[in-house]
Simulated scan of single mutants.
Amino acid sequence: MPGPEKKDTGAMPVRQLDPRSLRGLAHPLRIRLLAALRHHGPATASQLADRLGESSGATSYHLRQLASHGFVEDAPERGKGRERWWRAVHRGTTWDASLFDEEDPETRGAVNVFMHEIATIHGQELSTWIGTMRDWPAEWVKNADLSDFTLRLGPRQVRELGERLHALINSYSDAEPDEDAAKVRLHLHAFPQRDE
């Protein structure tokens, strides 16, 4: 996701988007396919179609498009016979803020599609948590967080805050997980609002 450059803490690197790769990724189904492969690991087009409620023809086509832009690749060690497995190449994406200044209408449209789809995914993930939290042990429900803050900051301070938060979050990716660890999603949004 866009934001400050992330430290590479794992074997999989973070992909720096440029105008061409952003345009290749900026399709709602491609973004969801890539997110599914990153969050759940390698899968076939049929498995992804079932997970996302799409046709396997659509997932196959968009996986090939993602591959042509270097976002996914074959996972041949997983396949049996003609079964084709896919895996994510990078653990995340980031981009330089200069993409917001692009004059090319296609790139500007790609920025909008990407940002809106990420916001939609975040909303869906949060709704899923709220709808299923009673299925989790009480310890998880008590310790999960749903907070918002309003601060008065300038653009430089927002960037600094983001960098510090990213550094803190990345420090946990190197930590030994607790015995009762589960996959935890963190969303970070920082944006200005006009005073009423």
Rank of each mutant, 00 (worst) to 15 (best):
Q47C: 02
E139V: 09
V141I: 13
P177D: 06
Y172Q: 07
G79C: 02
H189R: 10
G41C: 05
P137Y: 08
W86M: 11
S171N: 04
L151C: 12
L165E: 10
T128N: 09
K6M: 15
T132E: 15
T93N: 12
A26H: 00
A97G: 01
G57E: 11
P76F: 04
S60D: 11
M1L: 10
L22T: 02
D96M: 00
L33M: 14
I118K: 03
G24Y: 09
D104W: 08
S60V: 01
G10W: 00
A58E: 14
N170C: 04
E73P: 00
E179G: 03
L126Y: 11
T94E: 12
S46Q: 13
G131I: 05
M115C: 05
V141W: 14
E176I: 02
Q157D: 15
V111N: 06
W86Y: 15
L188C: 12
S55K: 11
F100L: 14
L25T: 10
H116G: 02
H90M: 00
D178F: 00
E83P: 02
L161C: 07
L168C: 06
R32F: 05
L34C: 05
P76L: 07
L63N: 00
F191K: 11
L25A: 10
G131P: 04
A67V: 02
P42C: 03
L17N: 09
H189A: 13
T9L: 12
A43H: 04
A11F: 12
E83C: 06
Q47G: 11
G53W: 01
G123V: 04
G92V: 00
